[in-house]
Design a protein around this nucleic acid. Sequence first.
DNA 1: TGGTGATCATAC
DNA 2: GTATGATCACCA
Length: 224
Amino acid sequence: MSKFTKPETEDELETRVLELAGQKLSHLAHQIHWPIPENLKHDKGWIGQLLEVHLGASAGNLSEPDFQKIGVELKTIPLTAKHKAKETTYVCTVPLIDNIGMTWENSCVYSKLSRVLWLPIEANPEIPVGERRVGRGFIWSPSTTQMDDLRNDWEEFMELISLGQVETITAHLGECLQIRPKAANASVVTTGIGQSGMRKQTLPRGFYLRTSFTNQILQSVFDS
DNA sequence: TGGTGATCATAC
DNA sequence: GTATGATCACCA
């Protein structure tokens, strides 16, 4: 099996992930002749895309799992100096219309999170991007409790959205999930449901996982 | 200083 | 605009 090709099994994927553990991003970038940005201000997806190439994830912007054949989604987790999740994790865009009859089991949040390869990466801003190291990744599925928590948040959000309350939702809502803007800038609009029940142009939003939730996942794997 | 709201690059 | 990949930047 050559590097950069699609893994055929979860075991093969895990083997490759372990080989990446401890490696510097500069090493991985040089192998595929990628320049290393000074900072990620203008290259926010750089690390994620670098790891996608190295693990043989499907390229492009297809709305399918990164590893289609084995149904696994790749998510990098930026870590602080204390090895805690530094940022929330984007899951998917929030459906603002045509969500009558939509259920948790057929939602995009459920399908994206059903099987995830978490890959922790050093993200302390004091460390130059190229010097940052890859952590030990692992494949995960939500526990029964985590699945219940996610579903509760999702159902609460979807009710508000279908009732035309999208614009009252802030990132403070939700125990493990939250809704925040997801757009190029604040002038981008998409169609949603207004307070009167009619269609209304509004800011596109996305579902994100709170850092407390991803930290809980990390702890269950690495701690005590 | 951490979380929320805003933003960046790129393909189509 | 939507989808992929996320981190930035500011304010409480």
